[in-house]
Design a binder for these strands. Structure first.
Lengths: 333, 333
DNA sequence: CTGAAAGCGCTTACAG
DNA sequence: CTGAAAGCGCTTACAG
């Protein structure tokens, strides 16, 4: 496929490359109607499409951004990606999707490759393993927005849920339903990932505020593979919790598998709330009470912040954007 | 962030740009150890990363591919994207994800933009609205792989499920469970989208082979919003179906909502199988019998085919790659 | 074993 | 109103 270049168009239209370029960039200021017509005709005849790469090299921008998610299997990530893609498409940007699998090394590779490819900015669900690398980006004024996770050491605009409130809503609702022994299970706290840490913190605060006892045995952050064991442990306590809050959708899935196998009755034997609204919440038996994140809006906002940064050189202050969780009461509580 | 260029490295190492370039491309054939050392030191000192865009312009390849999905909401699409991303990452390619929303115009825009951005190839779940545009790509020998859908007018490598077999497995299983009045519901047949058409065809063949009556009232292809009406219609027939096959995951969701609201007992009042294994299949009550697509393998294969094409100029014959469906028997039948 | 030169396909100040 | 020239940051034959 012999690519048509601006040179070919220039020749056919009988003008110079410069003039074609002016036309393409809509700098018609001093262009005669006559010339415009001829150029247009030549472009159509040849089926010319400008080479974006060449333009990018010259202009030092690619109109491409990247989103690096920590774990594409979370429904939250998928929704955010979708929203980012939508917003970018509306604004003439393309998005490269990368999945770091919560592995700092994979993440570092992506970041380096993406910089080499000259993406104009990145939206990242950061692991905490590449602080130095991010620091370089920040210092170099590279457009960056974090989602879901705060890295204390860095000042980067971050979009995330009001996690404490999310948990508070859930705990208060349990309380209203008469529960006092309430547990919480999240995925591993090992890397101090923001939503997990904040949800645990929020849990403690909420329990305290609502006058409920905070017991260590009711608070667990473990890998997905250990959730079964954790439930075995919690439910065989002398005083087992009567309600459990699942820290995210994947944890919720594991809990549901568990109660299903053991034929544990929800909500009579155990009440359940999950953070993250899941697509099957309404068809599960019983319908699941959840705390939804406005994932779509959050993704959109992240994209919006990033594109603003890209267009404005330096945007000034750094902000943490907290989004409101929404309790959706159904039948599992 | 002042970008370091090959020129800066050359200056520091005291050699020419050419030599740096040779080094970067590992053409060490005649390079002295001494020079290598100096170059390496200079690169490290400056933290130099080559500009991929400049290289792309010269080499006329970007090591970037795109995947355009018809509808990112299908779990199948998400899995395919994931697999493509994995495979590409292993092979030094980046992937741009686009969501055409089954809208030919949006699709056409993407294709044009992506070509302008010089992506090396595309994996597409094609709508049937851009045959001419695809023809140009094919004629120009542009690397292209279709997934999920065959466009008869075009000869393009295509990766998809053995849809007839998938349906056959489901129908035979219904039959073994004693069902004779079996219905099938898919999304709209208006655009003659391959999996829908083939699943309906497969249904007719299977019913015939198994000696069951094929009745038009039991066969529906409608938009998701009409599935409720369709079920109302089917189930109020004098002889309503006792089993229904859902054409994909989204249809299955709608059916599940319906039976849930009406408190229809699965499988006693109505048996159910869905094409596409869904994450909640095992936690639904009852556990759902499904026909799974090997989505991950399919995505991987598509990526593999595409990268081979990209590396080999013209790959010769065009093939349709059919993947084996797998019936997973659970409790909804 | 290494360097000078041309070129990839654009854009952009500047001259006329 | 339009064109010649330089340049974005690389790679690649070719010369020496």
């Amino acid at each position: 496929m012999k690519r048509i270049t601006i040179q070919d168009v220039a020749r056919l239209a009988g003008v110079s490359k410069s003039t074609i370029s002016q036309y393409l960039n809509k700098r018609y200021d001093y262009m005669s109607e006559e010339t415009k017509k001829r150029i247009e005709a030549a472009i159509n005849e040849l089926g010319y499409e400008p080479n974006f790469i060449a333009r990018s090299l010259k202009q030092k921008k690619t109109s491409t951004i990247a989103v690096i998610v920590a774990n594409i299997l979370h429904s939250f990530s998928t929704k955010v990606i979708r929203a980012v893609e939508d917003y970018c498409n509306e604004n003439g940007f393309h998005v490269i999707v990368c999945n770091a699998d919560d592995d700092p090394e994979k993440e570092a590779n992506y970041i380096r490759m993406l910089r080499a490819k000259q993406v104009d900015g990145m939206i990242v669900f950061p692991t905490s393993g590449n602080i130095q690398l991010y620091k370089e980006l920040v210092d170099g004024n590279f457009p960056l927005v974090f989602v879901d996770r705060i890295i204390q050491e860095l000042s980067v605009d971050t979009v995330l849920l009001d996690n404490e409130k999310a948990v508070y809503l859930a705990i208060r609702h349990f309380r209203e339903r008469g529960h006092e022994r309430i547990g919480i299970i999240t995925t591993s706290l090992h890397h101090r990932v923001t939503p997990r840490v904040e949800r645990i913190e929020g849990y403690k605060k909420a329990m305290f505020e609502l006058g409920l006892a905070v017991r260590d045995e009711y608070i667990k952050g473990v890998d997905l593979t250990y959730i079964e064991d954790t439930l075995d442990f919690m439910l065989s306590l002398k005083e087992p919790p009567t309600a459990i809050l699942a820290g995210n959708d994947l944890v919720l899935m594991e809990i549901l598998k568990y109660v299903k196998e053991r034929k544990i009755n929800i909500p009579d034997d155990l009440a359940l709330i999950g953070v993250d609204d899941v697509p099957f919440a309404t068809i599960f038996t019983p319908k699941l009470t959840t705390v939804a994140q406005p994932a779509f809006e959050m993704g959109r906002r992240a994209a919006q912040l990033l594109l603003t940064k890209i267009n404005n050189e330096r945007s000034g202050l750094v902000n943490i954007y907290r989004f409101e969780p929404m309790l959706i009461v159904r039948d599992s509580t």
